[in-house]
Amino acid sequence: MERTKPLRDIRSLSEDDLVALTKELGQPAFRAKQLREWIFDKNVCSFDDMTNLPKVFREKLAESYGFNIPVERAKQVSRDGSRKYLLQFSDGVSVETVGMPSKNKLAVCISSQAGCAMGCAFCATGMNGLTRSLTDQEMVDQVLHVSRDFGERVTSVVFMGQGEPFANFDNVVSALRKLNAPGGLEIGARHLTVSTCGVIPGIKRFAELPEQFTLAISLHSAVQSTRNKLMPGVKKHTLLRLHEAIQDYVEKTGRRPTYEYAMIDGVNDNNPEMQALIDFCQGTLCHVNLIQLNDVPDSPLKPSPMEKVETLQRRLTMHGVETTIRNSRGNDIDAACGQLKQRFAVKKSSDQ
């Protein structure tokens, strides 16, 4: 059966476009403002919900425009309350998104690309390569979907799902600004975190943004040869240049970047690796998140024992480096860091 081509998403129109469209459909100018508020401030996904617009106007809009929101193909619920979603966009491409509730807060981990081209050895996402980058609205739609499913306001968003955000820089920044915008979701800039493998041009551009968005770097080793094996997609962005770029970022912004360090048994948890991380961080403004590697099927890499994670935390703290051990959320449903795959539950969804 031939797939019907979706209507153009009205949310892709600019404010000027909405003004022109309103005029074209014979409506007074103030209707454009009302339409904009429904779309971007109230985030409605149906013309029927725009109750202060005339019915004839809504019907005309619906003839040519729609809301291409993603369809939930599968959902899994973790013992810790986290929920992982397989969301499919109008072109058939799907991504995974995770909602993580905690007391009166709701964090969402979103994808910036379908798949990933970085090829990190410990990550399930890159096993099938990159399908395509997501639009800004597709990223925002992931947040809106989780918010609707939980019936709660989202308080923080991390761009730590599938993809390398800085390989899709412009759309990621546009999504950040939509999530932060007054009158919309209004998520504080410091509660919007972008995690990069260490793409230096992206870090430099990120440092120029006026907003106080948070930067996280997937480091995983401060030894160049080890990092090259673990993260071949960023070989050209050497640790020396990365360190310089991050220090420039700190000087320009005054903000504290976070280093993500997944501890892998026998790979980056020995004494020379620990000392290299201490040397990389000591005397700089940063925060280190230590995490036991999350298991990925068919991967020979295994998590470090917790004793080694705690040892590294003590050593970093002793050298004045702010460090926490992060608990994995949603590990039992493969929703933790490094476990997201584009097609995780396609087969399961038919059974639900």
Rank of each mutant, 00 (worst) to 15 (best):
P257S: 01
A62F: 08
Y249P: 04
S46Y: 14
A222M: 10
E273W: 10
Q162C: 12
S133P: 07
H287A: 02
K75T: 12
Y259M: 09
L185H: 05
F150R: 00
T214I: 10
K178E: 15
N289S: 06
P182G: 03
R255C: 06
M318C: 00
R36F: 09
A114Y: 08
P6M: 11
K23N: 13
C197H: 01
R314M: 00
E211I: 03
S112E: 00
L134F: 03
G254A: 10
L239H: 12
E59A: 11
I200R: 04
A189W: 01
T324L: 05
A124T: 02
V173K: 03
W38A: 02
S328A: 05
G266F: 02
T284V: 01
F159A: 04
R11N: 08
G26D: 00
L285P: 07
P6G: 11
M263G: 03
G163R: 05
T131E: 10
L21F: 09
N171H: 14
K84C: 10
Q88W: 07
D265C: 11
G26S: 00
S349F: 03
N128D: 12
N271W: 10
L21T: 09
F213H: 06
N180D: 12
R11A: 03
V267R: 03
P297W: 01
Q113F: 07
L290M: 00
L185R: 03
N289R: 07
R73Q: 09
F122C: 08
P305V: 02
S147C: 12
L340K: 09
L185P: 04
L144M: 12
A32S: 13
Q76H: 13
M263T: 01
R8S: 09
A276R: 10
D265P: 07
N104H: 14
V288F: 05
T311S: 13
N52S: 09
R315W: 15
A181D: 10
E138F: 07
F40R: 05
D332Q: 15
G202H: 01
S299R: 11
N294P: 08
T196A: 10
E96N: 08
C45P: 00
L240H: 15
C281L: 05
S174L: 10
D136N: 14
N43E: 12
E59W: 02
Q34P: 14
Q113I: 04
G188F: 14
D279P: 00
H287K: 10
V56C: 00
M306D: 08
L340S: 09
M127F: 12
S147N: 12
V157T: 08
C120L: 00
L35I: 04
M231Y: 10
A114R: 02
V267Q: 04
I69L: 04
Q76C: 09
T258D: 01
C123H: 07
S225E: 15
G66F: 05
K60G: 05
A216V: 05
S78Q: 06
S94F: 04
V44C: 07
I278A: 06
L106P: 06
S156Q: 06
D17N: 13
F67I: 00
N327M: 15
K75S: 12
Q212P: 13
R329F: 03
H145F: 09
D298P: 00
P6V: 11
V288L: 01
T125H: 04
P303K: 06
P232R: 10
A117H: 11
K178R: 15
S349M: 01
E37R: 14
F344D: 11
